[in-house]
Design a protein around this nucleic acid. Structure first.
Lengths: 204, 204, 204, 204
DNA sequence: TATGAATGAGTCTTCATTCAT
DNA sequence: CATGAATGAAGACTCATTCAT
């Protein structure tokens, strides 16, 4: 009544996000959302078509950010052997990820763990797939640029490395790492990964 | 009537496994299992006490195999720097994992992805936790044996590496890799990981 | 649709009361209530949280009346030997009971006979217990006031006399006594009981 | 197998009696009886036609004893005013009841409290009815023999007095009175009741 | 915009009993 | 005499969604 409409809309979204976070998409009850929002169940349907739309709306900003991050990552800046000798490049990519994680903590949790039953239930796989394709493409271009390096790496290996990104995000979120812990981890991971890739690609 | 009893029991298990695989434990309906098995819903309860018991029975062999693998892995054979210079040790561990994956493809999928709501819903986390603890313990012992190496690695990094095992299994299963592909991947992963760890531990 | 909402609520209550009366709380089916009310089973749950709530709502007025009657009865007016020589006092108490019975015929039947399985299933015992305690307390006070009387009566005897109240109510209800019959019975019961108590307490 | 058949039959009866006592007729599960008896569910049906037959068989001796007690009570010995001046007669009747209670404690509990849903669920009422009829008949005969006494007592009053018997039994059982307590109560009840009836019948 | 009412399909599990072997 | 398998009905309750007002 006295609550302005947009307020209600926001309130539904916030409570829904809490519920989704706690019980997952499928086991979140519209009834409960309505109850906690202090409105009628059916009134929710004046703001959203259905449960899935609420879920999608919650994840909308995150999805945008992810898409942006992915396309940024896919630029041609990285096509240099320096990527594997100086920390700068990988660091820059990882920092993007950290930003994502820190800005969209809850939403990432939803997307990665709680989306079963929603229209985003396969999003995690899709991203990994796209990451893999980008990775393969990257290796191909590098080989063209630096014929001496070895890129004889199985598609699946690239795939596993790609999925690592999401797994790491997932773990960071699950364990509620603070900024310092994240930074420490990233430097370790870069050191570890750089050495690994150099070995595989027979650089130097 | 005409179907022999053990047949039906097996049929229930197989159909249940399919359903669990497709929809997850929680969203699998006993009604549907009965329907697809061509028997009465209530008749299922002559073979199993409840839904969870069916799930547990399906996973029973896998759980045993996992426990065995873990205890084998936890031996002291690995306490040598050779672990990081020759492929033999890691290879042996990874081959154990491969055996697991190839023998219990479907069941692993269930355990890793589809167990929410069942009594095994936290098993994945538990294993990662145990793996992490084993990893930290391992680093400590190595440091005692080889004081020159560095083990200044964050717990979280060890945790991520531990969870890698399960993630890799998960990916192998999801992508239905054949034996050759798995072998190829493993050699790559060993090469990659060995280089990474050597770098981190500052082994020459 | 065409039926107004409060109608339906009342209808559910009435039909539920009939069903409870016929089959008892436990053996009354929500399905059947819905069927007889001409509504959907699930729609009942728009009016009541669960079966027990329906039962409690039906008994709500009766419970209030009983509590009031009990507290009225527990006054100190009765602390006189006249209680056993003139009819007035007992008559007044019994008339209270009659009023209760005549006003809450059906509900009393539910409470006394049909509440097994509901949250009121022990109410009968509780009342008898409270009545017994009140009776014992009464005898003690009387002895203090009139030391010559005998109150050497077993607790169990007081208990049986207390449970009589409820049994009498129960019988009146079961046999659908009219007002005249009730009045007749009461005068008989007072005559009978007064003589009995006088004898036991050795009054004159 | 090694258990003789009659043993099994007895075992079923004993376990069933326990279950009926604990959960009542309706809420006792044949499955549980079979389980506790260590036999198959369906095997019970080789010994008894159905659940009700088990219940009836358990109560068979009690029913016989009740019928005998009732017919004994209905003899002509009691047709004397002495019944209300000496304790002997009533005492004899009450002692019969005590014997019943002490010999068939469990069975009476079943019959009075736990028979809902069985073919004996109305037995309590039936007995009270027969008791009432016997009481009315008794009063009539007394009036013929002793025209001076008053028998102007309502049918319902006789009914309540009749139901008292069963209520008292019920209370004795519920409270697990020992022999001494029962005897004490009975003498109190006789004193109370005799005085009451004398008053009502205007004897002396 | 907001509401209360309504719906039908769905959840897992238990029940007493029957029947062929 | 004993068994395991089978059945259909029933239990209370929840679900997301729709609709008339």
């Amino acid at each position: 009544m006295q609550t302005k409409k947009e307020n209600i809309r926001q309130q539904i979204l916030e409570i829904a996000r809490d519920e989704f976070t706690m019980h997952g998409f499928k086991d979140t009850s519209m009834r409960v959302i309505a109850l906690k929002a202090g409105i009628t169940l059916s009134n929710i349907y004046n703001y959203f078509r259905n449960k899935d739309e609420i879920f999608r709306e919650i994840l909308y900003p995150l999805i945008g950010a992810i898409e942006k991050t992915l396309s940024d990552h896919n630029s041609n800046d990285n096509l240099t052997l320096d990527y594997f000798s100086t920390d700068d490049y990988q660091s820059r990519d990882l920092k993007r990820m950290v930003t994502l994680v820190e800005n969209y903590k809850t939403e990432l949790k939803l997307l990665l763990f709680k989306s079963s039953g929603s229209s985003y239930e396969n999003y995690r796989e899709e991203i990994t797939l796209r990451n893999t394709e980008m990775g393969l493409e990257y290796l191909k271009k590098m080989k063209e640029k630096y014929p001496s390096i070895s890129v004889d790496v199985s598609t699946f290996f690239v795939h596993v490395m790609s999925s690592m990104w999401l797994n790491i995000m997932a773990e960071i979120i699950s364990h509620s790492l603070n900024h310092e812990q994240i930074t420490k981890f990233i430097s370790e991971y870069i050191e570890f990964g750089t050495a690994g890739w150099q070995k595989l690609m027979k650089i130097i």
